[in-house]
Every structure is written in C-alpha cells, then in structure tokens.
Design a protein around this nucleic acid. Structure first.
Lengths: 185, 185
DNA sequence: GTCTATAAGCTGATAGAC
DNA sequence: GTCTATCAGCTTATAGAC
C-alpha cells in the first residue's frame, strides 16, 4: 500500500477514536509509519487531509450503491434495493460511517466538500420522481420522501446497532414500515 | 447574568462555529468578558465545560417537551404532540441543535454524560408500549418505532431547513406519513 | 518522495494576589 | 470569585538534505 493510502487509513482510525483535535499530524504520521514531512507532502494542511478523507468515504459509499442495484424494474423494488444496499454498506464499513456521522456537521469540512459529496446521489430523486409519476408513490415533495427513506435507513441502523441479534428478523418489517409511509394507497 | 452562564453561552456560540478544537479557552473567556482564570474556576477542564453544556442542552430540550404535552388522551394525539413539540423546540433553538448534532458522536462527550442525557426520554417508550397494547400501533419492537419517530422528526427538520417557506404546509402530510408507517391498520 | 531538524506560536492549566 | 502572570508542552508547518 502506498504511503498516501496509509496516511488516510491511519487518520480515519484516529479521527473516529479521539476526534480531530485529539489527533495531531505527528500521531497520524507515526501510526501510518511515515514521517511528519511526508504527511505534509501529500496534504498541504491538516484540513485538506480531513476533507479528502470525507470525499473518499462518500465516494466509496456511492460506488457501492451504484454497483449493487440494477435488477429491479418497479419503484418499490428499486427503493428496496437502494435501502438494502445502503444498510449493507453501513454495516460493512462502520468506521467510515462513524467518521461521516462525526464530521458531516463539523466546521472542518468546508462547504465545497459537502457540495461535492452530495452530488451523485440524485439517483434517489430520480427513483422518487418516477414513482410519483407512475402513481406508486404518494404525491409529496421529493425531498420529503427522500428524507423519509434516509430516515428509515438511519432508524434501522440504530436499531441493529443496539439489537444486533434480533435486527435481521425485523428487516422486512422495517422496510414495510417505510413503504407504508411513502406509498400511494 | 452570572459569569458561569455567560461562559456557557459564549462557549456554545464558539463551539458550533469553529468547533471544539478551534475554540480555545482564552477565546471563550474573552467572548464571555471574563478572565481565563475565572473559566477554570467554574470548570475544572475544557472537557468538563463541554460536557456540562451538552447536558444543559438536553435538559432544556426535555423540559420543553414535558411542559408542552399533556392534553391528548389517545396514542395518535400524544405522538403528534410529542412530534410537534420536538420540532418547535428544534426551530426555536437552532444553536442548541447544531451543538447537539455536532457533538453527540464526539469523543469529547464522555459515556457518562450521554447516559445521563438519554435518561428521561422514556416517555416516548411508554407512549409506544401503550399504543401497542391498545392496538393502535403496529406490533413492532419499541425501539424500531421510536427510532422511526425520531428519524421522522429529523427528516422534517432537514426539509424545513432547505425549504423554509413551503415546509409548514406539508407538516400535516409529514406526520401522516409517519403515522401510516407505525399505525396498526 | 521521503526524511530529519527545527521553530514560532498557541494551548490548557496553575499559582497566587486581591 | 475574579483577576494577572506565567509556563511547559505540544501544535502545525517549513526548509533543506538525501
């Protein structure tokens, strides 16, 4: 693995355990088995490092989703695929998610990064608009529906974190609850 | 206002704008019009200060909720009251919420504080258990339902932040969507 | 690309006068 | 309770050799 990648990985681990403040660049460098100077060769500032890390997490996430939903044809199936893929990624990448939760509303992540990170998730909006048009989804603002989808994902994530053993048996129910709230009956 | 309160207010403002790291104790003291020594008289460490602030935010929130829901008798009404009260508080106290979002998953907030903060919100669990018993709520795990309620609140919060003008006209719909997902039909 | 050496500046926290 | 004065230690970042 090249040093740049090692630095990013070390930083991720440290940031989520001791925060941005608690993580000095020298600690990152030490953990990555790299000199302090090398760190500043790859990243002009500590802030640039954290912003790059943020974008990387978002892109990995997005890519996983895009690669894991292409079979379903109707709206309900598509949304279920999206919902499932998100949860799969979340549970296979707990560190990235912890990092994202911790820093998404942090002043260290600048506006440009957030904007760039949010781009590309518009496939959700597209699914929803399609669903409203073909009358399988309730006629509500797209953002309200997408918000509910994300909310359901988040809610199930917390549930599974607190009840790792029972969660899977309630997965279908959790999606059914989401679907009931956004479907057009 | 006494100096302790002034320190807490100054700290809140600084923390949400420039983060924990960016906010030095001397800046807090300066902003609060108080000497550095005085700050350390009231709070043994910087960490203690942020933990106290976190508890204060949570308690203010809880108190507002408790004082704003006592009239409804059936489950749907109670949950709507809770849902509304949460959103009201959120929009009247944006700084506290920003602070909470920023630090709820932060290593500066210790486990004891989080535990103490989460206590007292069990009125939600109570409402839900009541609702499941009298068959107005779907028979799902309490945590799954409560999670969905919190998620719905969060979702509408984001919607209103991005669409401040249209949000109010969709408030009823947003609650209806929540209710459809957790009600027993 | 990678390292070592280096430093100015700020940090949280203390001590002690009033 | 509140202040001033003070500090040891660590911080991010740079410069320059290899």
């Amino acid at each position: 693995m090249d040093k740049k990648e090692k630095i990013l990985q070390a930083a991720l681990k440290l940031f989520i355990t001791v925060g941005f403040d608690g993580t000095s660049t020298s600690k990152i460098a030490a953990q990555a088995d790299v000199s302090n100077g090398t760190l500043f060769h790859y990243f002009k500032t500590k802030e640039e490092l954290i912003n790059k890390l943020f974008l990387k997490a978002k892109n990995d996430y997005r890519e996983y989703i895009l690669n894991n939903m292409k079979s379903s044809k109707n709206t309900k199936g598509k949304i279920f695929e999206f919902w499932s893929a998100c949860l799969e990624w979340i549970f296979n990448n707990p560190e990235s998610i912890a990092f994202y939760d911790m820093f998404s509303s942090s002043p260290y992540i600048d506006k440009l990064t957030i904007e760039e990170a949010s781009r590309g998730f518009d496939l959700v909006d597209q699914m929803i608009m399609e669903g409203i048009e073909n009358e399988s989804l309730t006629d509500a603002p797209v953002e309200l529906i997408s918000g509910y989808i994300y909310a359901s994902i988040n809610s199930f994530k917390y549930y599974k974190q607190n009840n790792p053993d029972q969660a899977d048996e309630y997965k279908e129910l959790a999606f059914k609850m989401l679907w009931r709230s956004i479907a057009n009956f």
